[in-house]
Write a protein that binds this DNA or RNA. Structure first.
Length: 583
RNA sequence: GCGGAUGUGGUCUAGCUCGGUAGGACCGUAGCUUCCCAAGCUACUUGCCCGGGUUCAAAUCCCGGCAUCCGCACCA
């Protein structure tokens, strides 16, 4: 084919122009000049996003069984205090007054000065710190937090933030989710929603936004359990890997081998890399334009122990679309400590563990009169004592300490008992693998990869300027409009049939676009430009044979199909059950 | 946040040097044509990024802001 995928910067601009012209996306707040880092999705963009999200739900909620939740965007400060975001997403910045280079203040100071700008300002003055580049004087330190802040409630000083990731809602709901999962591991929870980051300089269109759509899954599992049975589904999946150990080489191998040779550290991690690769394929992203790159230790987020990004090749270069992070037990541990709520799960033993030994049993009847209000506390201390270390004391009385006071405990206040306990389970904090998807970036990659210009079908304007024929070869499953519906001629008898067909298609849940204006070729061109995979045209023969012509976008092939069968057939082709050539 | 470039209907652009009625193409709308791959004809809608200044007069010159692109920095 002579069609070209534009790789140039100009090509991306043409694509953005098309997306804006055809109602996929518009810069937000445009009539007031716009604000960087915000985009509105137009009618087609909204449908596209719904379709991408629906595929994500079918992959992760239906197929992987993740529990879907939906939680507030506004989050009280304490959550991010304990998750570490308050600290890690806040930087105190200074810049050189001479050469205007910005620096993170803590990079210029020894010994972790914290995030108080006043304290840092004093340290800078005391130590006479100047610009490490040119020796110029430095500006006053200023705090910059990547999270948008707000206040919760009027007149309240309860600070809140717009969440920078959706994950925290799931972690703090762990107990509810665990109970809902009938207290069994492993299980996953997912959220599709918005995230907010007050980026210093958002750029590159949909790639770096201040408010963006994300879909995140948190998969909770027991790290002591070896292997992961569902991984068999992706064991043979071939992927491109760029491990941290050889950041300049791309290895092509199947996930099973990658786990065996230690390139990927666990089957759970590899499983979700496989699920991610499969999801990308279902979006119509070509395998050869994807790779998984492992983070270098220096680029890991504060919560991550290991992380593989799915990167997709775009005209901006390789762009991170999905982060698959091993968050270990970090978040649950932090929130458990921070809230005082137990966020652990039970590990059931295959064979119950039998623990035999001896222990001290206090006799509260004796302790009561001696310790009075402190009797319960004394009893607890005694039962927690180890009889073997207390052994020598037995028969001689034992000493305990309450609030710094020492007491002798008489021999008749306790007895030694041997016991045999059968333990079936123990508590532990589950580990987490998190696949986190940047939906806007994925949409951009899908659009860019499906954008083609065909110079052979170019249209020449009067000024001699050549407008290429533009096609979005979107996968039928995610295309916002599934079928264009046209009467060949704008005549009452034809348009009545076409309108009926249009209504039938919509009743089948298929988004259509009815169009009777201009020439038939122009109408096909319009549909090609917004990525509509099929068009149905009613012509004079339809009056006699009850058929219409179905035309396929990518091949321009046409077939006659009975009107009454068209909705079901289009639905099957959109669902991927049949192809056009099967008809 | 710094430096550079840029900002004209929905889109692409001419005009800016040298101030004087903002022009074209595409897209869109309505009609004609009655038509299976952007045909043609007619009519129409829509614009100088925002604010201030200079001037008789500003798309044009000056100042400030905002936005976009590139580089630096930041960020995942």
């Amino acid at each position: 084919m002579d069609e070209q995928r534009p790789q140039t910067e100009g090509g991306v601009r043409d694509l953005y122009a098309l997306l804006k012209r055809r109602g996929y996306l518009w810069p937000s707040f445009e009539i007031y000049g716009g604000v960087a880092g915000f985009y509105d999705l137009g009618p087609l963009g909204s449908l596209l996003r719904e379709n991408v999200e629906a595929l994500w739900r079918s992959k992760f909620v239906l197929e992987e069984g993740f529990q879907l939740v939906d939680c507030p965007n506004i989050t009280p400060e304490i959550v991010f205090f304990h998750s570490g975001h308050l600290d890690k997403f806040s930087d105190v910045m200074v810049s050189c007054l001479e050469c205007s280079r910005p620096f993170r203040a803590d990079h210029l100071l020894e010994g972790g000065p914290g995030t108080d700008p006043a304290l840092i300002a004093r340290l800078f003055r005391d130590r006479g710190i100047v610009c490490p580049d040119c020796g110029g004087a430095l500006s006053e330190p200023e705090e910059f937090n990547l999270m948008f802040s707000t206040r919760i409630g009027p007149g309240s000083d309860k600070r809140g933030y717009l969440r920078p990731e959706t994950a925290q809602n799931i972690f703090i709901n762990f107990s509810n989710l665990y109970r809902h999962a009938r207290s069994r591991l492993p299980f996953g929870a997912a959220q599709i929603g918005r995230g907010f980051r007050n980026e210093i300089s958002p750029r590159q269109g949909l790639v770096r936004l201040r408010e963006f759509h994300m879909a995140e899954g948190e998969f909770f599992f027991d790290p002591l359990v070896e292997g992961f049975a569902p991984f068999s589904r992706y064991r043979d999946t071939m992927v491109n890997l760029v491990p941290a150990s050889s950041p300049d080489a791309t290895l092509r191998m199947d996930l099973g081998t990658a786990v065996e040779d230690g390139t990927i550290t666990s089957e759970v991690l590899a499983h979700f890399m496989g699920a991610t690769a499969s999801f990308a394929t279902s979006l119509g992203i070509a395998q050869e334009r994807t790779r998984f790159r492992q983070h270098l230790p220096s680029e890991m987020a504060h919560y991550a122990r290991d992380c593989w990004d799915l990167e997709i090749s775009t005209s901006y270069g390789w762009v991170e679309m999905v982060g698959i992070a091993d968050r270990s037990a970090y978040d649950l541990t932090q929130h458990s400590k921070g809230s005082g709520t137990d966020l652990s799960a039970f590990r059931r033993f295959d064979e119950p563990k039998v623990i035999e030994g001896t222990r001290l049993v206090p006799d509260m009847k004796v302790l009561g009169p001696i310790f009075r209000g402190r009797a319960r506390e004394a009893g607890e201390i005694i039962s927690s004592m180890d009889p073997s270390s207390a052994g020598s004391a037995i028969g001689e009385g034992i000493r305990i300490e309450i609030d710094g006071q020492h007491y002798d405990v008489p021999d008749n206040a306790y007895r030694i008992e041997s016991f045999r306990d059968v333990v079936h389970q123990e508590r532990f904090v589950p580990n987490v693998i998190e696949p986190s998807f940047g939906m806007d970036r994925l949409m951009f990659a899908i659009l860019e990869h499906s954008y083609f210009e065909d110079p052979n079908r170019a249209e020449e304007g009067e000024s001699g300027k050549v407008e290429p024929y533009r096609i979005l070869r979107l996968d039928p499953g995610i295309a916002p409009v599934k079928c264009g519906v046209f009467p060949l001629l704008n005549r009452e008898d034809l348009s009545r049939i076409a309108r009926d067909l249009d209504a039938d298609l919509r009743r089948q849940g298929l988004q259509t676009n009815y169009d009777a204006s201009d020439s038939i070729g122009r109408r096909y061109a319009r549909m090609d430009e917004i990525g509509t995979p099929f068009c149905a045209t009613v012509d004079h023969d339809s009056l006699k044979d009850g058929c219409a012509t179905i035309r396929e976008r990518d091949t321009q092939m046409q077939k006659r199909i009975p009107l009454k069968d068209i909705p079901a057939i289009v639905k099957r082709m959109v669902g991927g059950e049949k192809t056009f050539s099967d008809m």
